[in-house]
C-alpha cells in the first residue's frame, strides 16, 4: 500500500526566482498525525499547497494516496480535493452563512441531503458554532471563522486533513479543543498534516515533527518536540 503522502525530491521555485522548497523527500503513512513546523516563509504552506494541487512542483514528484498529483486531469483534481480536507490559514470561507459553508463542502463531496442535514449541526456543535449557524463569516470573529473552517473539513470526514496554522487565531483553550478534534479524526483513521509554529501545541501532543528551514527538511522525528533552534515569528 503506498504512503498517504509521498514527496520525492520536490523543489518549487516561484516565478520571481524565490525557491520555496528544495529537494524535499517526505513520506507520511495512512492514519499518521504529523506536524510541519518552521518559521514563516520557509515552505510550510507551499508544501501543503502541493498536496491539494494549488501549486505545482518545479521538480520532483508528489503523490497522495498513490495519485500522481501534478499529472491529474481537472476532474481528477476535484476527486482528489474531495479526499483532502484543507483548513486554510486565511480560512477561505464562502460569503454564506456558517451552515451553508459546511453544507456546500458536503454537497461538493456528493453527500446526500438527508446526511447533510444531520452532519452540518454535528460539525458546528463540535466547534461550538451551532448558535451562529445563520451568521455570515463577516460577522464572525477571526477565531470563529477559523473554527468554521475546521468544522467544514471535519464534516466531510476526509481521509487526509491538511491544516495550515489551524490554531493561529484561537485562544489556548480553543486551540487545544481544535487539536483534540484533529487528533480524534486521526484516531478514526484520517491522516493529519498540520503546519504550525505554535510550540505549545506541538510539545503537548508529542507527534511526529517535520521541520522545514529555507525550503529543506532539516528535522524529522517521531513523537518530537518543537525544535528550540527554529525560533518563532
Amino acid at each position: 500500500m503506498p504512503a498517504c503522502i509521498e514527496l520525492k525530491n520536490v523543489s518549487v521555485v516561484y516565478p520571481n526566482g524565490v525557491a520555496a522548497l528544495s529537494g524535499v523527500n517526505l513520506a507520511i503513512d495512512h492514519g499518521e498525525f504529523a506536524f510541519l513546523v518552521g518559521a514563516t516563509g520557509h515552505g510550510k504552506s507551499t508544501l501543503l499547497k502541493l498536496l491539494y494541487r494549488e501549486e505545482l512542483p518545479t521538480e520532483g514528484q508528489v503523490f497522495v494516496s498513490g495519485w500522481d498529483v501534478p499529472r491529474l486531469s481537472p476532474s481528477r483534481v476535484a476527486r482528489l480535493r474531495r479526499r483532502v480536507g484543507v483548513i486554510f490559514q486565511d480560512f477561505r470561507l464562502l460569503p454564506r452563512t456558517a451552515w451553508e459553508n459546511v453544507a456546500f463542502a458536503l454537497h461538493a463531496t456528493g453527500t446526500p441531503y438527508r446526511d447533510v442535514r444531520r452532519r452540518v449541526p454535528e460539525a458546528l456543535t463540535d466547534v461550538g458554532l451551532l448558535d451562529k449557524a445563520d451568521d455570515f463569516p463577516s460577522s464572525l470573529s477571526s477565531g470563529e471563522q477559523q473554527s468554521l473552517a475546521v468544522a467544514r473539513v471535519l464534516a466531510v470526514r476526509p481521509p487526509l486533513i491538511l491544516a495550515d496554522e489551524p490554531t493561529g487565531n484561537l485562544d489556548p483553550a480553543s486551540s487545544q479543543h481544535v487539536m483534540s478534534l484533529l487528533a480524534d479524526a486521526s484516531a478514526k483513521g484520517a491522516t493529519v498534516l498540520a503546519a504550525t509554529h505554535d510550540p505549545a501545541i506541538v510539545n503537548a501532543m508529542r507527534r511526529r515533527v517535520v521541520a522545514l528551514r529555507s525550503g529543506r527538511i532539516f528535522l524529522d522525528t517521531p513523537k518530537g518536540r518543537y525544535p528550540d533552534d527554529l525560533g518563532r515569528d
Binding site: S75, A78, R79, P95, F104, A105, A108, V156
Partner: peptide
Amino acid sequence: WREIYIMQLVGATRTT
C-alpha cells in the same frame, strides 16, 4: 471569482 475558486478547493467539480 474567489467564491468560485474556494468551491473548487473544497472539491466541487467544474460542472458542480
